[in-house]
Simulated assay, not measured.
Amino acid sequence: MTRYILLAAALLLSVLAQAQDRTMTAPTGGWNRAGLTDKSQELAKNYPYSLIDRGAQRNRRMITGHLAQASDKRPFPKLVVNGNPTPLYTDADGRYARAYSFGSGSNSVEVRGADGKSVKRVQFYEADRTRPQPVIRVIAAWDDNQAEVDLHVVTPDGQHAFWAHPALTNGGGLDGDTVDGPGPENFMMTAPQRGVYQVWINYWGNFGSSGYHFDESTRQQPIITTRITLVFHENTPRERREEFVVPLRSIGELTLVKTFTF
């Protein structure tokens, strides 16, 4: 009986996937190797690895899709991964691609429209317990698609993770530098050191069709709003998170967001 129920559920998911628009088109065949997946009719393909091949940053997966309308002005649609919302920007054709390093356990990916309503949501369970779990994750996102904003994290041994030095020798590090405005930028450690951590955010400059520049007049708003999320023991019964909203007013501004002891 259980087998027939699972078969019926799979058929229903397939029908629903064909009936919906291509809001979320990949990862093809689902994000995980076991449990619930979001099937598609596309051929399977390999996923790009993170630039940082350490711990939970190994096996980073791309989330790609297509919105009916391009989003380049506030309010933006949102991509919500495991409860962490980030503005979702697209190209002129409405396409987007965002990377995320999923840990084991229950994971979710949701696209919300500019009106805040859910457009599509996928919940899945990653059963691969050999994959290290992020014990500390720091996520930075911002709401101006011209802005080049950088996350900086200083670990207890004095090492400094940022765009020019993403990989630390203590096992922590940043994903690839996000230069096209959307974020998120992620810092993760699977075996964090004991001691004091510092989290900084920097409005480095702007990025446009002609490359990097420092013309503040291209900003969409006088103030850029950044959201920094700290997640501890992600996807476990001990999960705890803190969120901070930090305004950035001028290029070059460097702000200490949080000092915490782990």
Rank of each mutant, 00 (worst) to 15 (best):
A140D: 09
P182I: 08
E234L: 07
L13C: 09
I251S: 03
T259N: 01
G116P: 13
Y197N: 00
A70D: 05
A44P: 05
F124Y: 13
V15Y: 10
S209G: 09
R238C: 04
T130I: 06
P247G: 06
R137E: 12
K39E: 04
A97H: 04
L174V: 05
G65E: 01
R22W: 11
L51T: 11
P87V: 02
L174Q: 01
S217K: 12
Q220V: 08
I224F: 08
F187C: 04
D38E: 09
N170T: 10
D72M: 14
F124Q: 12
L174W: 07
T255C: 07
T169C: 05
L248H: 03
N202C: 14
F244H: 12
H160Q: 04
N186Y: 10
W200L: 01
R121G: 04
W142E: 08
H66G: 07
Y197Q: 00
G208D: 08
G195H: 01
T255H: 07
T25Y: 03
S118T: 15
V80D: 08
L6Y: 12
V153N: 01
R219S: 04
R98K: 13
Q20V: 10
R74W: 11
Q146N: 15
P77D: 05
P48F: 15
D91C: 06
A147P: 03
P87Q: 03
P166T: 14
W204G: 02
K39V: 12
A68V: 11
Y212V: 11
V179W: 06
W204L: 08
D38N: 10
V109N: 00
S250T: 13
A9S: 09
L168R: 01
E253K: 05
I5D: 07
K45W: 15
I5M: 14
L11W: 00
D215Q: 08
I224G: 02
N82E: 03
T255F: 03
R241V: 01
R227W: 14
R54Y: 14
F207S: 11
V111T: 05
A10Y: 04
L51F: 06
R112G: 03
T218I: 13
D72S: 15
G55L: 02
P247W: 15
L12S: 07
T259H: 00
D177T: 13
D38Q: 09
Q221P: 05
E253F: 02
Q146D: 09
H233F: 15
L79V: 05
A70W: 02
W31C: 12
T225W: 01
F102Q: 02
G29L: 04
F214S: 14
T90K: 01
L43M: 09
Y125A: 10
H165P: 05
R227M: 11
V179S: 09
F162W: 13
A70Y: 00
Q57T: 14
W31G: 13
A114S: 14
K258M: 00
G171W: 15
N82G: 03
T229K: 05
Q159M: 09
R249Q: 11
G35M: 03
G176P: 01
T25C: 13
L174Y: 07
D128N: 15
V111E: 00
K120E: 06
F232Y: 13
L7K: 15
L51N: 09
A141M: 08
F124L: 10
